[in-house]
Amino acid sequence: MTLHPGRGFAAINYPIGMNLGGDPSQALVHSNPDGKFTVALSSIDLGQGMKSVTRQIAAETLGVPVEDVYVDTADSDTGPHCMGSFASRGTHRVGNAVIQAAKEARAVMMEAAAEELEVNPDDLVTDGKGNIHVKGAPSRSIGTGTACAAAQFKQGKTVSGRGIFLVPLSPVDPETGEMTPVTCFAHAAMVVDIEVDDETGEVSVTQMNSAYELGRALNPKLVEQQLVGGAWMGMSHALWETTEPYYPDRSHGPIDFNDYLMPGPGDIAPHHISILERPAPDGPFGGKGPGEMCANPVLPAVANAVFNAVGVRITDLPITPEKVLRGIRANGGAKPQRRW
């Protein structure tokens, strides 16, 4: 038995969102009776950080502390419409909708503050710490909460805003089929190091090194955790997840956590990530978003690494020990391609 080292590379371009029917998402922002803000969305947070990132975007746009913003994604029946959390679209699409809604609400808050301070709203700025003051005269100030309360209980204004992001529909050229399906792309490159056991056909990942360009990383820790977790899913797609093999028929195939294998904590490998920030012109504060692309480069990089290690080109996933062994046998033995 020999363990053959292999190294594989892959680079990807990943479209953010899609343009089937305009890919719309909406946001509603309003001030609560206590002068803090609620952002209502139907966009789902299933752990990827939708609530955190939209909260940051709303607070930044409104000019209030992030503690003063609550994001409610509770109910897609009663909330504003959202296409959904898929296609890596959340930060970009929903973030843009939140900015539009927060700008409208901010304008009302500033008008209310101007009325209380008896100044022109154009002369007012927010300090991001919960105060609105006259430009160049910080002593003439009012709390954002006080301004919102004055609007609601004295001046008779709702401090609220509506936002939507809708991609202009790209017409399809009838001759060539050419269209512009997306508004921006994210990019990634990855090098995966593996070892292939030529007796068992097992492939183990020993190291991953990647670089991701995904606009501005609005919350760098959330970006990193998504990339680390997503790369694990990529490993899983590349090497583990399948309802096969089943002998002699489907009823003997994997049906639960015992047999439908995914990598466990002992199967993971160190992953070094570089985040490159190239803000997207149409992204919220330049953000595109990691999303699905976290997993994507792992699959081709692992397949290339297997070829590099033993000379077996596998074209259907996952790369199971059985396929590797059959490939090695068909080639008359392992044929390392190592050139690194």
Binding site: V228, W232, M233, F257, M262, G264, P265, I268, H271
Partner: peptide
């Protein structure tokens, strides 16, 4: 933690 399945984090942060 080998008996506990996680499907998001990739285990490393845990």
């Amino acid at each position: 933690i080998a008996g506990n399945i996680c499907r998001c984090t990739g285990y490393e942060p845990i």
